[in-house]
Amino acid sequence: MRPDDLREEDDGAARPDHDVPDLEGLVAERDRVRAEVERLRREKREAEIELSILKGALDLVGKERGADPDNPANREKTILVKAVSAGHGIPAERLLARVGLARSTYYHQSDAMKRPDRDEGLLALVRDVFENSLRRYGYRRVWLELRNAGIVVSAKRVMRLMTRHGLVPLLKRARRYSSYKGELTKAPDNLVNRVFHAEEPNRLWVTDLTEFSIPAGKVYLSPVIDCYDGMPVAWTIGTSPNAELANR
């Protein structure tokens, strides 16, 4: 080792040149870490803004029946932009592209919100008719009720009001058909007690009805099974699941 490869330290000892920290490398690594942290912060902020937009859309229109949080109206989008802008302290114009709202539309809706709502009085009447129908009337029936009361308004306007405010009629589910009407006569004694096994042939027979769907309609099979070996003793086929079918 050459003498100029050694440096004197504070304590008087000498060490090789390669043990000296690479200050330029450390600075570069520091700058890289700072840049990565800043990138992660930006991504986190963007994700928070996106989450606020989704939550805001659900809060605005998702709570009302018939509203679509994935496709809100321009008015709801404007309200959403204003709320997120105020909550995150960012300009509203930065959010317009995120919610699919044109700049001119945003300012038009903002100005319209400052004006008195001309539909406020009509909305109260529409809501009264709708609620008095136990939320069953659609916009046509509501419009007819208003017209019969002497209120002149177009059906389309009633439809837009009801759609905007989530006044969607409750749909009754069709009751599934069931032919079972309960026991028509007293049930016979339970002689088998769910022990479907016999030690000898022709000691215990059981029967039931099975429904089949064929192109011509429904048919019913009534077999008689010997519990000794599980083989059918006899069977009948008919178009009605009644006692006569089993008795034959």
Score class of each variant (00 low, 15 high):
Arg176Ala: 09
Arg147Phe: 13
Arg164Glu: 13
Ser222Met: 05
Asn193Cys: 15
Pro223Gln: 05
Glu211Gln: 14
Arg173Lys: 15
Glu211Tyr: 13
Gly182Gln: 05
Gly217Asp: 13
Leu161Cys: 03
Ala149Glu: 14
Arg173Asn: 09
Leu191Tyr: 06
Met159Cys: 02
Leu167Ile: 14
Asn190Leu: 11
Pro201Gly: 11
Pro169Phe: 05
Arg164Phe: 02
Arg164Lys: 07
Gly150Ala: 07
Leu146Cys: 02
Arg160Gln: 02
Asp226Gln: 14
Gly150Glu: 08
Asn148Lys: 11
Leu184Met: 03
Tyr220Leu: 05
Ser154Trp: 06
Leu209Trp: 03
Leu191Val: 12
Trp205Asn: 06
Gly166Pro: 10
Glu211Pro: 12
Glu211Arg: 07
Pro169Arg: 09
Val158Gly: 10
Met159Ala: 15
Arg164Thr: 08
Gly182Arg: 00
Pro169Thr: 08
Lys186Pro: 00
His197Asp: 12
Arg176Asp: 01
Tyr177Gly: 06
Ser222Lys: 08
Val168Lys: 07
Glu199Val: 00
Phe196Leu: 06
Ile214Lys: 08
Leu167Tyr: 07
Ile151Pro: 03
Ser222Phe: 14
Leu221Ala: 00
Ala216Gly: 04
Asp208Trp: 02
Lys172Met: 10
Ile214Val: 10
Gly150Val: 01
Ala149His: 03
Thr163Leu: 15
Arg203His: 12
Val195His: 13
Val195Ile: 12
Lys181Gly: 02
Thr210Gly: 07
Tyr180Asn: 00
Thr163Arg: 15
Pro201Val: 05
Leu161Asp: 02
Asn193Gly: 10
Ala155Phe: 02
Tyr180Lys: 00
Ala198Ile: 13
Val219Met: 10
Ile151Asp: 08
Leu209Ser: 04
Ser178Lys: 01
Leu171Asp: 03
Asn148Ala: 12
Arg203Val: 05
Pro188Glu: 09
Thr207Ile: 11
Val158Phe: 11
Val153Ser: 02
Glu183Arg: 12
Val168His: 14
Ser178Pro: 01
Glu183Ser: 10
Arg147Thr: 15
Lys181Val: 00
Pro215His: 09
Thr207Phe: 10
Arg176Gly: 06
Lys172Ala: 09
Ala187Val: 11
Met159Trp: 05
Leu171Glu: 10
Met159Lys: 13
Asp226Ile: 08
Val158Leu: 03
Glu183Lys: 14
Gly166Glu: 08
Ile214Gln: 06
Thr163Gly: 13
Lys156Cys: 09
Val153Cys: 06
Asn148Asp: 14
Val206Thr: 06
Val224Asn: 06
Trp205Thr: 09
Gly182Phe: 04
Leu171Trp: 15
Glu200Asp: 13
His197Phe: 13
Gly217Glu: 03
Pro188Leu: 11
Arg157Pro: 03
Glu183Phe: 09
Asp189Arg: 11
Lys156Tyr: 11
Lys181Gln: 06
Ile225Glu: 11
Met159Ile: 08
Ala187Glu: 05
Ile214Trp: 04
Tyr220Ile: 06
Asp189Leu: 08
Pro201Thr: 04
Leu209Lys: 10
Leu161His: 07
Pro188Tyr: 12
Leu146Ser: 00
Leu204Tyr: 00
Pro188Trp: 03
Val224Pro: 00
His165Cys: 05
Asn193Glu: 15
Arg194Trp: 07
Pro215Thr: 06
Ala174Val: 04
Glu199Lys: 10
Pro215Trp: 04
Tyr180Ile: 00
Val192Trp: 13
Phe196Cys: 05
Trp143Gly: 04
Val152Asp: 12
Val152Ala: 15
Ala149Ile: 02
Met162Val: 00
Pro215Met: 07
Arg160Cys: 04
